[in-house]
Design a protein around this nucleic acid. Structure first.
Lengths: 243, 243
DNA sequence: ACGCATCCATTTGTTGGACAAATGGATAGC
DNA sequence: GCTATCCATTTGTCCAACAAATGGATGCGT
């Protein structure tokens, strides 16, 4: 009985388009077909997909089905759709990924906190060799600036933004785009961690002082001090997560 | 003229539902409204959203609009929709992210290769302290198994899968979900790197020997040897990327 | 009373058609 | 040659209908 599920959909196209049969929904099939279309025709960023109605004919689907498939591709950051212009291939996957994790960032559990800070320790403490090899006076000046902006911030949210900017700037020094991208993706969670258990006052005193000590270690090229200061700084939040 | 754009949509619901006015499309508004609904009502994983038709009434939108919005939430891995049951809140965002980057993985440039391997060096070499603190005999046995499966693999693709499994198993030892998730997201790129410049024979000889040396260092708890062997192993691919 | 197959109401999945809105390009007027 | 206007094309939204799936109710036999 269920073998007849997709008969209408996989009816021979006759037009020469290969339509992969499947047990999935028509929309999912369509997404797969459009992906295949992009690959097969070697479409690149900037190229346009066929119009919705062309896709309807080509893959024997209704326009609503095509539209739902396009919504998925849009959500994936693979195409940008504009009236009259049509669907243009883009590559916004990083931004989409950021959006993905920005959504409804659940309350941060102690285990999540522990994992994220462990990760950051690896990125910011264990990378000390590479960091000291690359860091310049300009980098240090930028860090100083971000730190001061944090102290001057008007609200805890603004302060945590500056706090995050400080750490991002540090990661930037490594000159590794993969690491920087991952760090940015974690931004929403890291911000939650930063805000938690901190008032505006904490940012402008304790956190600012910790950052200053880190900058000091960077200036004097004291690796041991840097590692110690950064490790303490990252662990400072632990007391606030004692569920 | 264009001020009248959303009049129908933002017409007072009267039913007490707050509908945020906007200049965005009806679908995007709906996504925002549903997100707000989830937040406001404190819906958790496992809870159900209202039915499509209820959402139509509640937010004064047509069912197609609601469905396109739901497609977006599904693409984000936030809900799972089943006939009769409805839309259940889930959290598959990590898996979605994986899908995101699995699509059409572009050719790996030397700079990307360098960044990814740098990242892996940080994760697999610089984490040595944590690693040695946690690793057990069972872990080592699993690593051994993955390594042997790689040698026995029938194709380069199978071998690289086993290769990746070896490294993933190592990361698992750290017991840090955030790091493991990120590693999994990078899988498509890492696989590309692994396959490149390696034949099946390379996997069963050179790569297998390198892994064995790493396992040996883990067994004898020789940190220096581990770091050296792993570093060399990760750098072994560099000659193949000389554009 | 219990297990089982059957039926039914509800919900999502897909289709077709219609009209509104946006917009790039053609056209007409100066 | 330049600008304003119009038009054809394409996406955006809505409506109505039916198909498919499925959880739960119903009824039956033992």
């Amino acid at each position: 009985m269920s073998e007849e599920l997709g008969i209408k959909r996989q009816a021979d196209s006759g037009a020469g388009e290969t339509i992969r049969p499947s047990t999935a929904s028509a929309v999912d099939d369509l997404v797969a077909n459009i992906r295949a279309l992009i690959s097969d025709q070697g479409l690149k960023v900037g190229d346009n997909l066929p119009t919705e109605r062309e896709l309807c004919e080509r893959f024997q689907a209704s326009r609503n089905t095509v539209r739902e498939a396009m919504r998925i591709l849009k959500a994936y950051g693979i195409v940008s759709v504009r009236p009259k212009v049509g669907a243009t291939i883009i590559d916004d996957r990083m931004e989409r990924a950021l959006d993905l994790f920005a959504f409804n960032t659940l309350e941060v559990s102690r285990s999540t906190f522990s994992d994220i800070q462990g990760f950051r320790t690896l990125l910011e403490v264990a990378s000390v060799e590479e960091l000291f090899e690359r860091i310049t006076a300009d980098d240090v000046a930028d860090l100083q600036r971000a730190n001061d902006e944090m102290a001057d911030a008007g609200s805890a949210v603004e302060a945590s933004e500056a706090d995050f900017r400080f750490h991002t700037r540090l990661i930037e020094v490594l000159g590794n785009k993969a690491i920087l991208d991952v760090y940015k993706i974690m931004k929403p969670v890291i911000l939650k961690i930063m805000v938690r258990g901190k008032t505006r006052r904490t940012f402008s005193t304790a956190t600012h002082a910790e950052h200053s000590a880190i900058i000091e270690a960077l200036s004097t090229r004291d690796r041991i001090a840097y590692q110690y200061r950064m490790k303490c700084h990252l662990e400072a939040g632990f007391p606030h997560f004692d569920d």
